[in-house]
Write a protein that binds this DNA or RNA. Structure first.
Lengths: 256, 256
DNA sequence: CGCGCCGTTGAGCCCGTTCAAAAAGTGTGG
DNA sequence: CCACACTTTTTGAACGGGCTCAACGGCGCG
């Protein structure tokens, strides 16, 4: 048996084959054998309070994670005190896999937005996983490539979109990602999004004050409401028009 | 033997083991055996004129490429006519590998900035490459993860940086990447960068007019000069300060 | 020479920022 | 259940970085 319990507790850890978020995760379309292989590589099941740091830029790049429950965000701190959020991580998502560049240090930080539970793997085990279970390696590559195209969509958003469009796009994306985790996505119009206006601002490259005003305006147009962490979208198609990020919306839509 | 010559000519294709850009490429740290395996998977060696389209968003996602010579850029067209450049591709770089999302269509476009020569591979052969040569698969994953962190750095740039900083950062990055391809990088202070101000604008999320004014100002501060495609940087460290993108610079520096 | 692409310059405007302060949650302990 | 502290949201007023629109200049190329 593996050494669990470094921070988390073994008895609260779910076995991979019984895991409810697995259908969304790294190990989704895999055989029983591959799933137990994955489980054998798991090094810890770690539970953290909201606001905890998971890793920081500059720290050694040794672990990778699957988020079991809660929300995580990846961000970069800038010299002038600014912060850019790079990605929001939802249950089932894989994160923390970063190319090794020279010094083996993290280039960005990860923090728990809510209380979270993580499945922890050693980065150094990945090569062995590759060797023993080709499908796991292929899947890791696919996930990394997927994160890359998502990052590219966000690049286009930050580079070329107005405040209104950026916010609409971010909320639409999160709305759809959360809906995906529901049993009947098409009929869900209200989802819980545990963000503050400041976090939205840091993800969209705007100030909190301007996020407030812009969301007010979106509300005035009956595109969405967002109160006490509940995002309500009466007509997702109208929000998509607002986001003006044509084709990507169809991608997200196709996954529903 | 494989069917070459679809667009390019077999006789101008270099064998992988003799290839000058290989040291920078996907197949860099590999054994002789793996290199010839890579070569056996190459489907074409394709030469294109400056301005040619390599693939377009919406087209089927079937090929991947190594750039043998010239410059390529990846970009996304937006509904309102705007354009965001996602990445500049230099000789030896791998590109065109995109996660398959539902419909198997490209999410962005690629275009030749200069005359280019490409080594073309079939996307569908990648799995076989994985199976037969584990190291090639690991390397592909590493490269994809590397592209992701580069995209994240650009996200931070577009989200949180001033026009001056964005331009300084882009030019510093390209300066260092081109220098890497020289025999004695540390002593090179002038490199050829085949960009127009409009392309710089589309990469930095600015207008061409404002790029012009900002570069003028950088020139006035003796940070750099850029005339007839020649970028001269008297003191890269000062440019790095201007770019204000602290740690990433050290990454690029470490690779020199 | 003439055409087209690219770079340069000017004037005015607007989106988003900055600074500041108040109001409205939200959680905690008594 | 209230008092208190802290976080988050809301609102106002003024500023400014980057945009828009427009015209001109320069250079390469057929």
């Amino acid at each position: 048996m593996k050494q669990f319990g470094e921070h988390g507790e073994i008895d609260r850890a779910v076995r991979c084959e019984d895991c409810g978020v697995r259908k969304l995760a790294l190990f989704q379309p895999l055989s029983q054998e591959e799933i137990s292989a994955a489980q054998s590589f798991r090094r810890a099941f770690r539970e953290l309070k909201a606001g905890s740091s998971i890793f920081r830029q500059g720290s050694p790049n040794t672990e990778v994670y699957t988020l079991h429950s809660g929300w995580v965000y990846l961000y970069q701190n800038l010299a002038d005190g600014g912060r850019q959020i790079l990605r929001f991580v939802l249950p089932g998502d894989f994160f923390g896999f970063q190319a090794d560049v020279g010094d083996g240090k993290r280039l960005h930080s990860a923090r728990a937005l809510t209380p979270v539970a993580l499945c922890v793997f050693n980065r150094s085990d990945l090569l062995a996983m590759f060797k023993e279970h080709l499908e796991l390696g292929v899947r890791l590559t696919w996930l990394t490539a997927y994160d890359e195209i998502v990052a590219y969509e966000h690049l286009a958003s930050l580079g070329r979109r107005s405040a209104e469009e950026r916010i609409a796009y971010l909320l639409l994306e999160l709305f759809n990602r959360v809906r995906l985790r529901e049993q009947d996505p098409q009929h869900v119009h209200t989802v819980r999004i545990p963000l503050t206006q400041e976090l939205i601002a840091d993800a969209c490259g705007l100030t909190q004050v301007h996020v407030n005003r812009t969301m007010k305006s979106l509300q005035g147009k009956n595109i969405l409401t967002f109160h006490s962490k509940k995002l309500h979208v009466p007509d997702p198609d109208r929000l998509a028009v607002m986001a003006n990020h044509n084709h990507n919306f169809f991608v997200l839509k196709a996954m529903l």
